[in-house]
Each structure stands twice: as structure tokens, then as C-alpha cells.
């Protein structure tokens, strides 16, 4: 098994002048290709901060993150954007779809920032929309969808560039439990197809479906 992400001694410190918040205090994690890992812990324990750093949305105050063998420390802004685009798919608690924009255009968005030729965009987009079962809603605007449908659009969008790694931050947080279960099942399917999944949640029950749990408390990993 090869490592897809390796983080060593990651610190994240917010210096707010009067206050110094240590969101991460020397976190080291190793995640292998094909794993389904849940990052769990109470609210405010640093889960999201860790995920953002692992997903190159944020930079650590110190420590390093290696993705697919590449140390991300020296990467330029453009190269970071490329890694996010090609190798990682994000799913957020609040969906983060483009407002008043169709399902089709939302799912297609990562392709527009990729090197995939435009002639292939439509096929790839439709394939992902079918995968999440929204082929009847392609022309609906994002605000015309239910919460569960929105999250399915977000999953299709995360998958459209065929990344090896999916990172989801409380993906069921805004959904009722039945819809939440459907979304979780989707992640299990994807993992079965070989995708590496990092699921961030404060919900212990939800975390049970993962092969492995990384438990956070007050900026530290307490169980791995």
C-alpha cells in the first residue's frame, strides 16, 4: 500500500493579536491509497483545519504535507491549484454550489480549470450526473434543488476530474438522517471503486462506517 497523503508535525496557529489560537498542535497522519478514513472529534477540535491543510486549501504554520510523493511546501500557487483540480475532490457541509447556475454548469466547473479538452466536458459531466442520479434535473438551477440533491451535485462535481482523493467536511451536516445515509452510501460505493475517502465528522455513529478513525481533540490526534 502506498501513501497518498503524509503529514508530519503540522501546526496551525492563528495569531489574532491579543489571542493566539493553536488549531493544530503537531499533527502527523499517514493516509494510504484506497483507504476510507474518518476524522472525528468534538466541534472546534481542529478537524476542518486539518482537512483544509491536507487538501491544500490552507497552508500550515509549520510542518509538511506530502501528496502522492510531492512535498507541497515549495509549490507555487499555480501548482497548488493544479493539484486541487486534478487530484482532490471536495465536498462541503454547505454544498457551495454556484448560485442560480444549472446542475450541468455546476458539475462541469472543475473541468473548465483542467487540461481536459472541451470536447470531452459534456460526456464526463453527464456521466457523473448519472452516477448521482440527477439526469432528470440537469437544467435545474442549484437553488431549485433539495439539500440531498445539492449534495449529490457537489459529489458529482468532486468526481468529474476523476481525482484519486475525495475530502468531505461534514457532508451530512445539513441533511436529514435518511438523505444523509444515502450520501454516506455513495461514499462507500466510491471507496469500493478505489477512491481514497477522507470524511470529516463530529458524528461518532457516522464515523463507524469508515475502516479507520483518526480522533482529534484540542488540536491533537488522540487516536489513530
Amino acid at each position: 500500500m502506498s501513501a497518498i497523503i503524509q503529514a508530519t508535525e503540522v501546526y496551525k496557529i492563528y495569531d489574532l493579536g491579543e489571542e493566539r489560537i493553536e488549531a493544530l498542535k503537531g499533527v502527523s497522519v499517514l493516509i494510504n491509497q484506497g483507504e476510507f478514513v474518518a476524522i472525528v472529534g468534538k466541534s472546534g477540535s481542529g478537524k476542518s483545519t486539518l482537512m483544509h491543510i491536507l487538501g491544500l486549501l490552507d497552508t500550515p504554520s509549520s510542518g509538511e504535507v506530502i501528496i502522492n510523493g510531492t512535498n507541497t511546501k515549495g509549490l507555487k500557487e499555480k501548482q497548488l491549484a493544479k493539484v486541487r483540480n486534478n487530484e482532490i475532490g471536495f465536498v462541503f457541509q454547505s454544498f457551495n454550489l454556484l448560485q442560480r447556475t444549472s446542475v450541468l454548469d455546476n458539475v462541469m466547473l472543475p473541468l473548465k480549470y483542467s487540461n481536459v479538452p472541451a470536447s470531452k466536458w459534456m460526456d464526463k459531466t453527464m456521466e457523473m450526473i448519472k452516477l448521482v442520479g440527477l439526469e432528470n434535473r440537469i437544467h435545474n438551477k442549484s437553488n431549485e434543488l433539495s439539500g440531498g440533491q445539492k449534495q449529490r451535485v457537489a459529489i458529482a462535481r468532486a468526481l468529474v476530474n476523476d481525482p484519486a482523493l475525495i475530502m468531505a467536511d461534514e457532508p451530512t451536516g445539513n441533511l436529514d438522517s435518511k438523505t444523509g445515509d444515502e450520501i454516506v452510501k455513495k461514499f462507500l460505493d466510491l471507496n469500493a471503486q478505489g477512491k481514497t475517502i477522507i470524511l470529516v465528522t463530529h458524528d461518532e455513529d457516522l464515523a463507524k462506517i469508515a475502516q479507520r478513525r483518526i480522533v482529534m481533540h484540542d488540536g491533537c490526534v488522540v487516536e489513530n
Binding site: 487538501g55 500557487e77 491549484a81 471536495f90 457551495n96
Partner: peptide, 16 residues
């Protein structure tokens, strides 16, 4: 601002 953040998360560069 949120849209800009999202686009960057999905692979947009500052130049884009």
C-alpha cells in the same frame, strides 16, 4: 467571496 473561494478550491488560479 464564497464563489471565488470555491472556484479556487476547484482548481482556479489567481490569474483565472
Amino acid at each position: 467571496t464564497r464563489e471565488i473561494g470555491l472556484r479556487k478550491a476547484l482548481g482556479a488560479t489567481s490569474g483565472n
